[in-house]
């Protein structure tokens, strides 16, 4: 038998974050991407409820979704801030807009999302305040603001829907634009992260709502999203497996390589298949209704981002 060609490459470079293995992004970036997707899901759900006239059917999602989105967005931005090596330069993101840099337009989307979500969040607060009889809400300025916003409910919903979709896709495009990392170099990561974000947003609302009707509706919708997410994950892996040498090596990380166990057990198994089974059996009234499946969807969404961000750094083009 002919001996295989031997190739070994070594370098005297020993730069932190780069050698011996690349690790420039730690836990902060997947956490940021997770909260970004979650916020996108909450905003899209609120906007969809508003635009389809389902506010009564989805009381929690339509009223508290945008309200919840703001602190969650804050947590995501805080994680991103922690990742920056030059924290005092954080405002440099807003000195320019570079269309070829997803991180540039993404940072602008984050600001726009925060501003756009304020209006429906304020409306939720006013509705709650009226119910509880908060006197300060009766002041003319606040009443005028409330009247102004009430006349623009549809426009605000459209705005939040657009920005929610943009935010969800951006969290995936941020990775897929980095062609030097074959694991990430797939445009399907945009729609994949959007669907995953929508799924986690629905799971959070289904967990927190007191309305059984809303929970049942959201759980059924989430089952569809889980199926779409599984389809996108399959397409992503298929795309890598049928690509060039670097892409095939990237696919091998999940098909027998070091990320196989964590990907198939935590992301696909615990994060998608188990919750799908739990919710389906609850719908069929075979098993009791629990919130375990919803919690697993959230954990699975987080794990998807942890695994992909970490695996992407495991190999570059040409090894």
């Amino acid at each position: 038998m002919q001996q295989e060609i031997f190739v070994e490459e070594v370098s005297t470079r020993q730069n932190p974050h780069v050698d011996p293995g690349l690790h420039f992004w730690g836990w902060e970036v997947p956490v940021y991407l997770f909260f970004g997707g979650l916020v996108a899901g909450l905003l899209v759900l609120y906007a969809a409820a508003e635009l389809t006239g389902n506010r009564r059917k989805l009381p929690f999602s339509s009223r508290w979704g945008p309200f919840l989105a703001l602190p969650l967005l804050g947590l995501g931005l805080f994680a991103l801030f922690l990742d920056l090596e030059y924290k005092s330069h954080v405002l440099r993101f807003y000195g320019t807009l570079k269309l070829r840099s997803p991180m540039s337009w993404g940072s602008w989307i984050l600001i726009l999302v925060a501003v756009a979500a304020l209006a429906p969040a304020w409306q939720s607060l006013c509705t709650e305040g009226r119910r509880r009889g908060w006197a300060w809400l009766r002041r003319p300025a606040w009443r005028n603001l409330q009247r102004f916003l009430n006349h623009r409910r549809k426009s605000m919903a459209w705005l939040n829907l657009s920005l929610g979709v943009a935010l969800g896709i951006y969290t995936g495009i941020l990775l897929s634009s980095l062609a030097a990392r074959p694991v990430w170099s797939s445009t399907i990561l945009g729609p994949l992260f959007l669907i995953s974000g929508l799924s986690t947003g629905l799971a959070l609302c289904a967990w927190l709502t007191r309305s059984k009707l809303e929970r049942h509706f959201l759980v059924r919708l989430d089952l569809i999203l889980i199926a779409v997410e599984l389809l996108f994950l399959s397409l992503w892996l298929f795309g890598l497996s049928s690509g060039g040498e670097a892409a095939r090596q990237a696919a091998q990380l999940f098909l027998g390589g070091p990320y196989t166990a964590v990907f198939w057990t935590l992301v696909v198994g615990a994060g998608l298949l188990v919750p799908a089974l739990l919710e389906t059996m609850a719908i069929l009234r075979r098993w009791p209704e629990t919130r375990v499946g919803l919690a697993l969807i959230l954990v699975g969404g987080l794990m998807l981002r942890f695994v992909l961000v970490d695996a992407g750094q495991a190999m570059g083009i040409g090894g």
């Binding site: 780069v18 420039f24 992004w25 920056l84 330069h89 062609a179 030097a180 570059g316």
Partner: peptide
């Protein structure tokens, strides 16, 4: 520079450091 490391992520040669 904000130290976001997007450049490090995009460099195929891993030629940058913090």
């Amino acid at each position: 520079c904000t130290g976001c490391k997007a450049c490090m992520a995009s460099c195929p040669y891993d030629a940058r450091y913090v």
